[in-house]
Structures are given as C-alpha cells and as structure tokens.
C-alpha cells in the first residue's frame, strides 16, 4: 500500500461520523501517526499502550492455527476498535451517547 493510500484511508476513518480518534502504532505501543491535535501526543500514547497491551494479552488465547484479527472494547462512553496486523495496530476510537 502506497503512502497516499494510507493517508486516504486514515483520512476516511478520521472523518467518519462518530469517530473521535485514529492511531496507528506498532506492536510495542509506540504511535506512528495519529489524528489527535495535542502536540505531545499524550492521548495517542495512551491508546497505543492500551492497544498493544490488549493485543499482547489476547493473542495467546486463540488456537495455534488461529490468528487475532481485531478487538473491540466497549465502555460506557466510547468503543475502541483495535485492528491487528503482524507489525502494526490500527486503533479507532468512536464515541456515542446512550
């Protein structure tokens, strides 16, 4: 996938209705790029840490011939969707009002 395609996909996700943040990070929890506006990337690092930790915890739960595809963590105010890849994690945060 070329850089332009990555950019267009991230932009599409960022401006989807209800989505409040998008983070791309590696498996160690270091954010590569994010859609938040804060310069110190605090929120991106928090979500990246969360995603990496949960992906690390969930992967061994599956059978040997199965691989982790995605995780969805729904809380009271938001839902975090973690799409897993061999090297990267895509984190999408969407919020809703109940």
């Amino acid at each position: 996938m070329t850089a332009e395609r990555v950019e267009s996909v991230l932009e599409l996700l960022t401006y989807t209705k209800g989505v409040t943040g998008v983070v791309v990070c590696n498996r160690d929890g270091q954010p590569i790029r994010d859609s938040f506006q804060d310069l110190d990337r605090t929120r991106a690092m928090e979500y990246a840490d969360m995603a990496a930790e949960l992906a690390r915890e969930a992967a061994p739960l599956l059978y040997a011939d199965d691989t982790l595809d995605s995780l969805r963590v729904r809380s009271r105010t938001s839902e975090v969707i973690i799409k897993c890849h061999d090297e990267f994690l895509l984190v999408v945060i969407q919020e809703f009002s109940e």
Partner: peptide
C-alpha cells in the same frame, strides 16, 4: 468510565 463489552475476533471465531 467502565468496561461494558469486549469482543475478540480471530480468523475463525
């Protein structure tokens, strides 16, 4: 906040 629901999706299950 608090956890309401969790989904773990793999290739098969």
């Amino acid at each position: 906040n608090d956890l309401l629901f969790l989904r773990v999706r793999s290739k098969k299950h």
